[in-house]
Design a protein around this nucleic acid. Structure first.
Lengths: 159, 159
DNA sequence: GTATAAAGTTAAGCGCTCTTAACTAAAAAG
DNA sequence: CTTTTTAGTTAAGAGCGCTTAACTTTATAC
């Protein structure tokens, strides 16, 4: 087995295990809060990408503007999202997590994080350092890649 | 910042980025196949844990036996699952992926894997090795942890 | 300044998942 | 051998998310 093959295989295995685990944790947590997955995903999106307009929600989740509006409306009434008028364009709305929404997402992250903590508690200090370093490398690469895709989209818009 | 804090932070950051990305990929892929998320999740579960009975589905997804039965029924009619009678207990059914179901899940994994590949294509060979090793360490730890939980549940059943 | 486009909202209706309740058939318990 | 438990199915109904269509309000184009 070549180095490259070994590399591919560890990626695949890890993705398989991690995906499965996170999905279960995520949907359990969402259910425990009384939110549906689509609703919870919107909160996660806002946490991850920051405040945005209604149309952004509609695009990112690939649903109609009507669907986005209805979903967000429920979250506003439940107190997880603040919906204000965009001062620059009075047609548009600005959506952002409320403190309650932020608290919810952070709590969810902590629960998932607890698993990782349990996972790594039995590793040696040296292994922990090794893992930490590798994960930062990956995180940085992911952020760079995201940035590149954003730029590419911007280019397309400019041409 | 202590070593332990740095470790925690890289875990958190990575989980955040990776979770978000995988979720999006997963739901897009599920949508593209025409399956709902609950349906797709059942296929993933079968892929991950292997064949099982109806009651196992119901437990793992924390839904009623009726819901599991209906969901599985659709997947059987769509040709993704094979449902046969358990020879040891004629009340029970054995559920497993059909070749078509297996193909679907593998295709989904490949799509998510492509992102990882793109992600790591810009890393140096040395970084790739470092990442591969760290991920195997994590995968092994996850599997051991899973096993431990299974044993604990078995113990509870015995007492 | 009028016409057109864009951002959201609201309402009606469809399909999906989920639940409870009633049921069948097979296994286990007594 | 009868009773009870277990595995799964079926049917009716509630709730949710999504779509299309019609609409309001604000911004942009000509």
């Amino acid at each position: 087995m070549t180095k490259s093959e070994r590399f591919s295989q560890s990626l695949r295995e890890w993705m398989d295990v991690f995906m499965h685990r996170s999905m279960r944790g995520l949907s359990r947590f969402a259910k425990s809060t009384g939110l549906s997955m689509p609703q919870f995903s919107i909160l996660m999106q806002l946490h991850h990408k920051g405040a945005c307009g209604m149309s952004a929600i509609s695009e990112r989740f690939d649903v109609s503007a009507a669907a986005a509006s209805q979903l967000v409306d429920k979250l506003v009434h439940a107190g997880y999202i603040e919906r204000t008028e965009d001062p620059n364009d009075r047609r548009a709305k600005l959506l952002d997590l409320s403190p309650k929404g932020r608290e919810l997402i952070e709590r969810g992250a902590s629960e998932r994080y607890r698993w990782m903590k349990e996972l790594t508690s039995q590793l040696s200090t040296q292994e922990q350092e090794q893992v930490a370093e590798a994960l930062s490398v990956l995180t940085n690469a992911a952020q760079k890649l995201d940035q590149k895709h954003v730029n590419k989209s911007a280019d397309i818009l400019h041409n």
